[in-house]
Each structure stands twice: as structure tokens, then as C-alpha cells.
Design a protein around this nucleic acid. Structure first.
Lengths: 126, 126, 126, 126
DNA sequence: GTGGTCTAGACCACG
DNA sequence: GTGGTCTAGACCACT
């Protein structure tokens, strides 16, 4: 369970942890039925409060990525493909919003961004 | 000084105001030496607290967009447009690369991203 | 002793087991004096902890469904069926009245509730 | 803001508060744009921790009943009728689940419940 | 041991 | 003043 917490990031810690666990699930690194570390042990290894990890697991559960059962632990839930797709789209939307924010602040035209997007897309091996 | 504040936006009000002023400067709508409205009058016309406008002007000053002179007011500073523009383009390219990376990993089409980009651009208030 | 445990259910395991045993008793499938499986063997066949079965038997005993005798085992107690049944019917009527109150206030049709009732009945494991 | 907290209830406090506020909103007692009490003041008047109220407001926000803005407060959001309907259906489902739980424990037939439901529905003025 | 809830108290960003 | 985040420490129910 390699998770990196950056105190520089503006994102809250519980969200940083959550997004990294989501990525592991979406990448297949964590599979359906796999158990996640117990809250207390993960909290200890990440050197954060148990409450913070709890918040992370709670969010993951609410979003359907994991199931938690008192006394048994937390497990990766059956994944819905459209869920994952939506999650990816949300991440993309986050980046695009940043792009637009910067662009509007610096008078860069939408057309220029679109061209750059297409250029980068073609250049990228994929 | 037409500035729109959206209470729906997650962005703080002072940042909404600042980015719209930045835009006006980058677009040449506000030129070097032009004076910005007095804090109290801008606050009044936008129906926000003076403190909020104060924070806006502080940020603009720190970022080099304006100069404030006690007792005289706030003025647009000399802009090094091309430098700023290049920095911004680099940041945009970074985000777009992330977007493309995610998209290629999840089978999302370039066309869909382009549409999302345009949609967000139109939705985003200044 | 066919008992089904659903890990999806929010109900604790000991309660799932208890309610299924109660059902068997109320339905006459288990009769007065019949012996229940030993805790350890039931635990083994259900693949749960002995502690969980212990908790189940404790509850059944406290509610008067079974009697436990150290060294001899656990047996179905004498049931006062009609008394229990009437109490249960009264509780059910209370809940149904609540349901109807909500439904009438929000324009939900009786038919829809009936359908929901049947759907839930089929979904609910014992 | 008359809210009653019962320590007897199995429901967590934050949920008890939330459901009562939801009811006020659904009943029109709290209307769109109305401001809710500040977390700290509500916490004080209910004699619970600020954290508990925070959890309540967070849940209400996530479910779309209210909007919170740092520095300004928490306000009733624009209500979606289907949201309210779903909320009512969820409450009904909760009661029906209780009914089924009792029924299955006491060997009461689904048909009998259905008849009782219809009988009560007709008897109830509405 | 597990997760769920509640508490008290702190610091931050925002207005 | 507001809400948002993080912390530490406690008690509970379940396995």
C-alpha cells in the first residue's frame, strides 16, 4: 500500500489518500474482494489520524469503490465500468477547469488551447 | 467595470474578482497607468465586503498586475505580457498532458474531451 | 439447518442467523424440544466465528425461543405462538400506518407501495 | 429551529438532526434560500458537538438539500421534486423493511400484510 | 481485532 | 462571524 501524502497539496489529506486508492482499484492493482488495510494500521503507517483514514474509507464507500463491515474490515467492491469512466471524466474535467482558469486569466483563446490539445494528443504514444 | 460574481462557484469571491480584472488587463481593456476603482466604491457596486476587495487588490499587487499608492489609489502596472503568457502556456500544456494520459488509459475519445472543454469554457464565468 | 448469510446485508450476522432460526420455529419446522446444532458445528458449517453463533443462541434464549442446558445443548422452548403473533401484527400495523401517512402526503400510489413491498419481500434473505 | 434528539433512538444523532431538517424543507417550512443556523450555534442549542452538526450539514449538502459557503453560512438549496419523492420512497422502504423483518421472524404471510396495508389505506382519511 | 459514532479543541481560509 | 480540515481520545457493536 504505497501512498504518498503531500502537505504542499491544496487537497485535503483524506482526498489524497482516496484518489490514490481509487487509482489502484481502477488500474486493477486492487481487485474485487481484496481487503484494504485496517483504518488504524493505515493511519499509523501514513502517520495521520485514524479519523482522516476513516473519512477516506467513508468517501470510497459512498462512491461505491469499497464495502466496509464492522468487525471484518474494508474490501474492494464489485466495480461498475461506467463508474470508473465517470471517475476518469471527473478527473479530466478537473484538469480542463484548471486550463480554462489559466487561459481566462491570461487572455489565451479557446482555439489555441484546442489546437494544443490536438497536437499533444497526436504526439503522445498511445 | 463589469464584474460578475457567482455564488454558485466554489472559487472564493476575491479570486473571482481578481481573475476578471486580470483578464481585462491581459486583454488590454485596462492599460498601464489606468486607475482601478477605489476599494470602497467597488465593494459597494459589487455588494461585497470592503475586506474582500482589499484581498483582491492585495493579490493583484503581489502578482505584479497593479501598484497601490497610499492616498492616490490603485493603478495598472507595466505588464510583461509575453513572459506571463509563456508561463501560462506551459502550465496549460502540463494539464493537457495529464488529460490525454488519463483519456488514453480509459478509452475516452479526443472528440469527447474537446466537447467538454468547450462546454466548460462557456460555463465558466470569467 | 439451511441458513443463508448475506455479507451484503447491513444486519449483523448473528441477527441474520437468529431470525432464520426464529422463522423455522414459528413455522413449525423446528418444534418444542428439538435440539439445535452445537455452537461449534453450526459455526463451522456457516463459516463464522463461534462467538457469533454464541451471540445468536444467547439472543434466542433471552427472547424465550430456546433453552440452553450446560453440557446437554440447546433446545427449542415451548412457544406461545398466538401471543407473539399478535404482538408482531401490532408492530407491523404501526409501520404500515407510517407508510400510509407518508404516501398520502407525497402523492405516492398504493399500488407502488404494494409493488415495493413484494420486491423487498423477495429480496430479503430470511 | 425545533429539533428533538432522542438518545434512545438507534439512529446516530447527526442523522436524527438531518432527517428533521429534511422534513422541514420537504414540508416547505424551510424554503429555498432560507439560511440554516450556524453550525456552532445549532450545536450549542442542541447541546451536541459542533462536529456532529457539521456532519449533519455535510450530509444534507451531499444530498442536495442545502448549500454551504465558507464565511457566509448554510442555505436551503433549490429543491428538486423528484429528490423529495425519492426521499419519501426511501422512508417508506425503511418502514417496509421493518415490516418484512418482523413478518419473516413470526411466520406471517406476505398476503396477510398486503391485505392489512390495503385495509389501513382505505380507513385512513386522505 | 474490526468499523461507527461522538466528543473536545485546534488551525485555516473566507467575508 | 462563517464553514472546512485535522487532531487525539473515547465508547460502542460486531467478529
Amino acid at each position: 500500500m504505497e501512498i504518498i501524502i503531500s502537505s504542499k497539496s491544496k487537497k485535503p489529506i483524506y482526498e489524497q489518500i482516496a484518489s490514490q486508492i481509487k487509482q489502484m482499484i481502477m488500474a486493477g492493482q486492487l481487485q474485487e474482494g481484496d481487503s484494504l488495510p485496517a483504518m488504524r494500521s493505515l493511519a499509523k503507517s501514513l502517520r495521520v489520524s485514524v479519523i482522516t483514514v476513516q473519512r477516506t474509507y467513508e468517501d470510497l464507500q459512498r462512491e461505491g469503490f469499497v464495502d466496509s463491515a464492522v468487525g471484518r474490515g474494508t474490501f474492494v467492491a464489485k466495480q461498475d465500468k461506467s463508474l470508473i469512466r465517470n471517475e476518469h471524466l471527473a478527473m479530466i474535467e478537473g484538469h480542463l477547469s484548471e486550463v480554462i482558469h489559466i487561459a481566462k486569466n491570461s487572455g489565451i483563446e479557446l482555439e489555441e488551447i484546442t489546437k494544443l490539445l490536438h497536437k499533444l494528443f497526436e504526439e503522445t504514444g498511445g
